[in-house]
């Protein structure tokens, strides 16, 4: 019994060490989203130069499942995900809307889209982070999945890749579409 007392500090050390080891594998940049499950925050952004003059507001997100993608021409990871967003657009999988975040000037974002291709349905200019902060964005790119009722159902931090799409986004979008179809059927009958 007395011997065991001496093992106690070692045991405590191991437990603390275990927690710290797990802590090392966690990414401190990944924060839980406060908005998942809640409505899209109210925002109303000016259009990008040379694009649809409507701009982009929270009311545009009602009616169908859509993605809201936060990007910027300054953002390297956005370049990484860009080809895959183009693929989504070409296959018409789901509409992607853009919050063009913190551009140095009015032309930087539109120039970037002209140069690499424009995967977005609607796009709004957010030079002062008004919408980005309302969405709780901490860095670009971030992508939100919004259901037809305008509820944020998922937030993805970092580039959208084929794997992210296959594993997470595509199944979720399918699920949300089925959910919406059931609901409208219920209302009709």
């Amino acid at each position: 019994m007395n011997r065991l007392v001496f093992l106690l500090p070692l045991l405590v050390l191991l437990v603390i060490g275990g927690y710290l080891a797990v802590g090392l594998t966690l990414d401190p940049k990944k924060l839980p989203s406060m908005l998942e499950g809640g409505p899209v925050p109210a925002f109303n952004l000016a259009p990008l130069e040379g694009r649809d003059a409507r701009g982009f507001s929270n009311e545009d997100l009602l009616g169908e499942v859509s993605l809201v993608n936060v990007f910027g021409s300054w953002c390297v990871a956005c370049r990484v995900e860009h080809p895959f967003l183009m693929k989504i657009k070409e296959n018409d999988w789901v509409p992607i809307h853009a919050i063009d975040w913190r551009e140095p000037d009015r032309t930087a974002g539109p120039d970037w889209l002209r140069r690499f291709g424009d995967p977005y349905t609607l796009a709004g200019d957010d030079p002062r982070s008004k919408a980005a902060i309302a969405f709780g964005v901490t860095g670009a790119p971030e992508t939100f999945v919004v259901d037809p009722q305008g509820i944020i159902r998922y937030k993805h931090v970092g580039p959208v890749t084929q794997q992210v799409w296959d594993d997470t986004l595509a199944p979720l979008i399918e699920h949300l579409r089925a959910e919406a179809a059931n609901k409208s059927k219920g209302e009709g009958g």
Binding site: R102, R128, S129, A132, I133, T138
Partner: peptide, 10 residues
């Protein structure tokens, strides 16, 4: 950071 600046303004 720019986001910090925008938060200060907010």
């Amino acid at each position: 950071a720019e986001l910090a600046r925008d938060l200060r303004v907010l």
